[in-house]
């Protein structure tokens, strides 16, 4: 589904990703872990198409298409979804209107008919029930004055509404207490299926107790330096990132 080959990218002339290789197949859940500054959020930004990042080498194909050639809205149409680490507050724009516009634009891109007011409401009610989403949140301006947990729930709700093939969760656990993590993770797990994949980017292992990955990769200094199964995450939790750093640094010296 997603194939990243030797991806190199940076911002303002500073190279951050120095050759990433990653292959995500339908139905798989991958986790990318790594210390601060290793390039985790850069990877998420590059995949979603954030403008100020510059790709200097390598390729990303998504369902056979060259992802890097597409505008952010086209990537969404193709079925890529980024749950933001810091969801943006947009005063004056109602959450429901925003989601309705997004759903219908994505449907248009996918060659489906736009939902009318009644059809949309029905669809939204279904997803709200599924995700235990509160109506009061949806009538407020987008993310404005939302708590950290509410913002992240809103992200996962948007994910449910847009039905992506690949969801990238960028540090969705940051700033959340354990109850909020559980709620958000439950939402993600409900959306898992054999045709859609998840890429979880996180600093801590605890999120992976709830969203259990098939593969874990460690990102350090812009490269994936170690890959394994969920046991790798536990090992990292126990031993910290230092043992990875030491292995890499020893390797570099040799």
């Amino acid at each position: 589904m997603l194939k990243i080959e030797n991806l190199q990218a940076g911002i303002e002339g500073k190279q951050i990703l120095k050759g990433i290789n990653l292959d995500i197949k339908p139905g798989e859940v991958h986790a990318i872990m790594g210390p601060n500054g290793s390039g985790k959020s850069t990877l998420a930004s590059v995949l979603a198409g954030r403008e100020n990042y510059e790709v200097t080498g390598g390729s990303v194909t998504f369902d056979g298409k060259d992802l890097l050639e597409l505008a952010p809205e086209e990537r969404a149409g193709e079925g890529l979804f980024l749950a933001f680490q810091y969801p943006v507050e947009i005063p004056g724009l109602s959450t429901t209107n925003f989601i309705k516009t997004a759903v219908n634009e994505v449907r248009k891109y996918r060659g489906q008919e736009a939902l009318d007011a009644v059809g949309f409401l029905k669809y939204m009610k279904e997803k709200m029930a599924m995700m235990n989403m509160d109506q009061s949140l949806l009538s407020r301006p987008l993310n404005e004055g939302f708590s950290g947990g509410e913002k992240k729930r809103n992200e996962i709700f948007q994910m449910a509404m847009l039905e992506p093939k690949l969801s990238i969760l960028d540090e969705t656990d940051s700033g959340l207490d354990i109850d909020a993590i559980r709620i958000v993770s439950n939402g993600v797990n409900k959306l898992r299926g054999k045709n859609n994949s998840v890429l979880v980017i996180t600093h801590y292992q605890r999120l992976l107790d709830y969203i259990v990955p098939d593969f874990v990769h460690v990102l350090y200094k812009g490269r994936i330096v170690k890959s394994g199964t969920k046991e790798l995450a536990l090992e990292l939790e126990e031993r910290g990132y230092d043992f990875i750093k030491n292995e890499v640094n020893v390797g570099e010296e040799a």
């Binding site: 724009l93 997004a102 634009e105």
Partner: peptide, 17 residues
């Protein structure tokens, strides 16, 4: 970027903002 990442084309995203 947030609106675009949800599938809303740039022109329309500006108008919404």
């Amino acid at each position: 970027f947030y609106l675009q990442s949800r599938g809303i084309p740039e022109k329309q995203a500006k108008s919404l903002l």
